[in-house]
């Protein structure tokens, strides 16, 4: 084909192989050494009884995994994290999907590009700083509390800071651009004539949404949901900053094992249990949802 002209005749495929290795080798060696090897070593550590550094003696064990199933503490936290992930994903869809729809079907031309950029822009700026900025809004006597008290005199303190809703608000703010982005891409691909045809055949707005738009936009919704759900499960900085003392989730417990308690094997085991459950959900849950829609 066209490309083999550059690659050379089939006879000298050895030099072709060399070129491919030279071009892709460095990037992939880097990825293997800094991502795949560390993950494998961490998997190995999750089966150790102690951190094998210095004079500590470590033996192979499944104790760390057993701890998860024996102690309610970890299971409750894992459930709490999954609930948090589900709620954040749901709110991102609820508020993000209409936004993507307006952007894809109502706004036209240069405005669309500009608005699209405006939505993506905060998303790529520093996540930590954006979570921190919410403390300025939510804190006692902050902007939000003053605004509410100005609208409704003598409303009193809101008491939002260091609560579960504060964590939700911060996380939705962090991740909603993902949902808007992926929904926008799949909504834009829907032919407007399809919607017009359905309308002219007598379908109501709600029917068009339920039977036509939502099913066609489903891949985008799904992609957005996965991109939000998985990182929210692993979040630890957001609950700590916005949740304070109530901000304990599986992510913060895993972080503790590595930075405070120095129980790396337990932290590693909890990480892999989390990854395992996510994988199960993706393998079983996603095809099931797809069948329904």
């Amino acid at each position: 084909m066209a490309r083999s002209a550059v690659a050379g005749a089939p006879g000298i495929s050895r030099s072709r192989l060399t070129t491919i290795m030279v071009l892709t080798g460095p990037a992939y060696i880097w990825l293997v050494v800094t991502v795949l090897l560390p993950l494998s070593v961490m998997l190995y550590f999750s089966f150790l009884s102690d951190v094998p550094i210095g004079k500590r003696v470590a033996v192979l064990t499944i104790e760390n995994y057993a701890a998860f199933f024996e102690k309610d503490f970890y299971r409750i936290l894992m459930l709490r994290s999954f609930r948090l992930g589900a709620e954040v994903t749901f709110y991102c869809f609820l508020f993000g999907f209409p936004c993507a729809y307006v952007l894809a079907k109502v706004i036209k031309g240069r405005w669309r590009e500009a608005l699209f950029l405006l939505i993506i822009l905060p998303f790529w700026s520093n996540a930590l700083v954006r979570i921190f900025s919410w403390t300025m809004v939510l804190r006692g006597n902050g902007i939000l509390e003053r605004a509410v008290n100005w609208l409704i005199p003598d409303f009193g303190p809101l008491g939002l800071m260091f609560t579960y809703p504060a964590i939700i608000v911060g996380l939705v703010h962090s991740y909603i651009p993902y949902m808007i982005l992926t929904c926008y891409i799949s909504l834009q691909a829907i032919d407007d004539h399809l919607i017009e045809a359905a309308r002219s055949l007598g379908a109501g707005r709600f029917t068009v949404l339920r039977r036509l738009v939502l099913p066609l936009a489903f891949p985008g919704i799904l992609a957005g949901a996965v991109l939000i759900f998985v990182p929210v499960l692993g979040s630890f900085m957001e609950p700590r900053i916005l949740g304070g003392r109530i901000g304990t989730f599986i992510g913060t417990i895993i972080e503790d094992q590595f930075t405070a308690v120095f129980n790396w094997p337990l932290g590693a085991a909890l990480s892999f249990i989390m990854l395992g459950i996510v994988l199960l959900i993706l393998l079983i849950g996603v095809p099931a949802v797809r069948r329904v829609i």
């Binding site: 800094t34 991502v35 560390p38 993950l39 070593v41 961490m42 550590f45 998985v230 990182p231 499960l233 692993g234 979040s235 630890f236 992510g251 895993i254 972080e255 590595f258 790396w264 932290g267 590693a268 990480s271 989390m274 990854l275």
Partner: peptide, 11 residues
């Protein structure tokens, strides 16, 4: 999640 990537790099 970066939490898992980061801790595995640390380890």
């Amino acid at each position: 999640p970066w939490l898992i990537i980061g801790t595995s790099m640390l380890v």
